[in-house]
């Protein structure tokens, strides 16, 4: 038996997971997402991250980004390394993809704010 906290939403359900032969029994989840989370967490924990990327604009030195979807937890710092090498040199908008299929993980780096559009008037 394993105990874990579901991190899908702020409810943070306390889960107990029983693995028997081919079946995984999850208890404590308030919604089906909790069961999916538990199964994923046992087989291959996945996470997502947010960070910032550098820009060429002095007024807005960095803009916030996110990773489009979850990816294997153990690759977090590899992905961060990629993010650290990005530099934005145009007025990017929320939703713009700055890097596609990062490290072949099927994830994109996506801008999460319109701060450049709001601030930089070229």
């Amino acid at each position: 038996m394993r105990e874990m906290t579901c991190i899908v939403c702020p409810n943070g359900c306390h889960l107990t997971v029983n693995e028997t032969n081919d079946e995984i029994l999850v208890k404590g989840n308030l919604c089906p997402r909790g069961k999916d989370f538990a199964i994923q967490e046992i087989h291959h924990p996945m996470r997502t991250i947010t960070s910032t990327v550098k820009t060429v604009y002095k007024e807005v030195p960095t803009i916030p980004i996110k990773v489009s979807k979850e990816f294997p937890k153990e690759r977090i710092f590899d992905v961060m390394n990629q993010i650290n090498h990005i530099q934005v040199d145009y007025v990017a908008q929320q939703g713009d993809v700055l890097m596609e299929n990062v490290l072949g993980l099927g994830i994109n780096i996506v801008v999460t704010s319109n701060i450049l559009k709001e601030t930089i008037h070229e």
Binding site: T52, V56, T62, H85, Q87, D89
Partner: peptide
């Protein structure tokens, strides 16, 4: 210093 100091690529 900057958190993203060692930038060498530009998008």
């Amino acid at each position: 210093g900057k958190t993203k100091e060692n930038t060498d690529e530009t998008i």
